[in-house]
Design a protein around this nucleic acid. Structure first.
Lengths: 228, 228
DNA sequence: ACCCATATTGACCGATCGGTCAGCATAATC
DNA sequence: GATTATGCTGACCGATCGGTCAATATGGGT
């Protein structure tokens, strides 16, 4: 259509595809693969349904494309996170990175969650392959830290799962958290408060008295924000 | 059909309804409200589709019935959990109770999770009402503990969310956890190991040096079970 | 002007959706 | 044994599902 040799992507095509992906991520994350319909996606994207199929091929192709995009965003940020420096900075970075990741891509995170709730039919290979290796390598490092007396001898896998679950909770259960707190969305101060809390509890709980930690011997930080 | 005056429930009716609820919980938990179909539920229950509607009225009625059942199971176990005795036993009980609850009703827990992922259209009242009050009352107690110096002055709401997320993770993300660990399901030893880990990290992380805690000054317990 | 690759979409397909209903089966009541 | 209330379900309803396709629109290259 709009020029560009003939290689791959015209700018308008990219724009349209982006809007479809945005709409699809929203619908899939709310209703899961089976519960989502192309018509809902089309309506949200402001396009006729046939147009969605024209650009994406099929419902399944659109879905796995979203899944892969989210996987790569995940990898990008977390790949370089683990030197074998001190546990405090590494775990602290891990917590905060995971926290902002969930805030940056809330829909994508929910998409992942729905896929796993459904039994991970499209992700089982990824989980048992790439992700498993990622966990193994990090677990090995944590075990070394424990052996060196830098932290308690906790099971590294449970520690990783703990950080995952605690950080993901606020994006994937935003409806629950919001309902209980009485807010539609978490504020910037909430996020900072939560991150600090998690750092405090997890690092201290693992017996890490690190350099980059702001965990005082007692009493963490802010007040309790009054509250419900 | 099978006798019993005419008051309410015949035993055969109860049996059939139970089998429908079982099948429906399975399907709804995997695919969410929209993604589930009455035909799938009927097939899994071994009944014709019309029979499901005969007993349950409608898809929505069946769904909210499952939601309510899970809510009540939840309340039953957790209602009596909070005296104002010492933080260590209370939090420890809370962690372990929540852990076994997820193991006892994995399908129901996933049903809840799917509902909240979808934006909690059927649960918003419950979240902003009953559950919110529950959190408030527990938060008040935790704040007292902090004020009495029994534990660090962490935000009680974040602490509650942390315990929720950490315990729920293993049931709702069983596909992910299983894929990474290379098991189909968690063993009894896994569960004990995880519970001990969470007790250790959370109690110690909150500065609780309780009576009922098995958190040694360093090194928690078991080895690392080799690992993947 | 003509061509042609690409973009776009209304109309349509068989399958499945949640739900209704008429009709038959079953079994307690008289 | 006739009556009646209830259990049960095949057949069907309009709506919507994912997907196909023919027809049309568009716009640059020649």
């Amino acid at each position: 259509m709009t020029a560009v040799s003939a290689t791959h992507e015209s700018p308008s095509r990219e724009r349209i595809e982006a809007s479809i992906l945005l709409a699809a991520e929203e619908v899939f994350s709310q209703h899961g693969y089976r519960g989502a319909s192309l018509q809902m996606i089309a309506d949200r994207a402001g396009l006729p349904k046939a147009n969605i199929l024209y650009y994406m091929g099929s419902k399944q192709a659109l879905y796995v494309r979203l899944l892969n995009r989210m996987m790569h965003r995940w990898n990008e940020v977390l790949e370089d996170i683990t030197p074998d420096s001190d546990p405090a900075t590494v775990l602290s970075d891990f917590i905060r990175t995971k926290m902002v990741l969930g805030q940056r891509y809330p829909k994508g995170s929910k998409l992942f969650a729905a896929e796993i709730l459904a039994g991970a039919p499209f992700l089982s290979d990824y989980l048992a392959g790439e992700l498993r290796d990622w966990v193994s390598s990090r677990a090995a490092i944590i075990r070394q830290w424990s052996a060196q007396g830098k932290m308690d001898a906790v099971d590294p896998r449970w520690l990783i799962f703990l950080i995952w679950s605690a950080t993901q909770h606020y994006t994937e259960y935003s409806a629950q958290v919001g309902g209980i707190l009485g807010r539609d969305a978490l504020t910037e101060e909430d996020l900072e408060s939560i991150s600090t809390f998690l750092e405090h509890v997890i690092l201290k709980g693992c017996g890490i008295t690190g350099s980059a930690s702001n965990s005082a011997p007692n009493n963490s930080a802010d007040a309790h924000s009054a509250g419900n």
